[in-house]
């Protein structure tokens, strides 16, 4: 039996853009359902058993953040949000509410497909393997044994650095906001000290990146947060 096609719901009010997204996703082999309002989107999401939602934040009939919260109440499927530039606050709000990634308009088909693939891959791997060993670049992390190695030699990380790294590698390809990282690594009382994350992220980069000023794995999303890329 062939694998079922991944189901993607596209919620976007602009027909031209919707059409282009649909074409790109279908070329990639997805089954696409599209709607132009949040209300309808929520119904579609409830009935189509989607594997992913692509959501435009600038919909006329409501706040995307509410949609994400509603959806997150009963589902953990990946959500990619589409937004315009200069609205970092909206993006952060959506990500904090539970979105996984974002794309800034205008974006090309290649960018869109890369994100979609990454999220679908993450979903299938999360469902499948229970492996606790992660490898990227010259780094190997064994979460079960709490060991980090660089080119086969043990690499010393402080507890916070380790927790930060562990959280990053278990959420690859997703954008993690400062607030999310602070809450998980430092605890809720530090939720507003975002400079902690930035400082420790810098320290972590110095240990695991070849060139910390042009990182390959821990990517900064300016004004929003970080994204971990394993390849």
């Amino acid at each position: 039996m062939s694998e079922p096609l991944p189901v993607v719901i596209v919620i976007e009010d602009e027909p031209k853009i919707r059409r282009f997204i649909r074409m790109s996703l279908e070329a990639e082999g997805c089954q696409v359902y599209e709607t132009d309002s949040m209300q309808r989107g929520l119904i579609e999401a409830g009935t189509r058993k989607p594997d992913m939602v692509v959501l435009d934040l600038g919909l006329p009939d409501g706040d995307g953040v509410d949609f994400i919260r509603d959806l997150r109440a009963w589902s953990d499927i990946p959500i990619i949000v589409l937004s315009a530039r200069t609205t970092e606050a909206d993006k952060v709000g959506a990500l904090d509410a539970g979105a996984d990634d974002y794309l800034t308009k205008p974006f090309g088909a290649a960018e869109l497909l890369a994100r979609v693939r990454a999220q679908l891959r993450r979903r299938s791997s999360a469902v499948g393997s229970g492996s606790t060993v992660f490898e990227f670049g010259k780094i190997r992390v064994d979460l079960g044994k709490r060991i980090v190695e660089l080119s086969g030699k043990p690499l010393h990380l402080t507890p916070i650095e380790y927790r930060l790294l562990a959280y990053l590698i278990t959420h690859p390809d997703s954008v993690l906001t400062h607030r999310q990282l602070l809450k998980t690594v430092w605890g809720p009382s530090h939720a507003d000290d975002s400079h902690y994350v930035r400082v420790y992220m810098g320290l972590l980069r110095k240990k695991i990146e070849d060139d910390p000023s042009q990182p390959r794995h821990i990517i900064t999303e300016a004004g929003v947060g970080y994204r971990f890329i394993s390849v």
Binding site: K16, K105, G108
Partner: peptide, 13 residues
């Protein structure tokens, strides 16, 4: 921006 975004996407597709 919306028409531009559509243009970029449509050219791609």
């Amino acid at each position: 921006r919306t028409p531009l975004a559509a243009l970029v996407g449509l050219a791609d597709s």
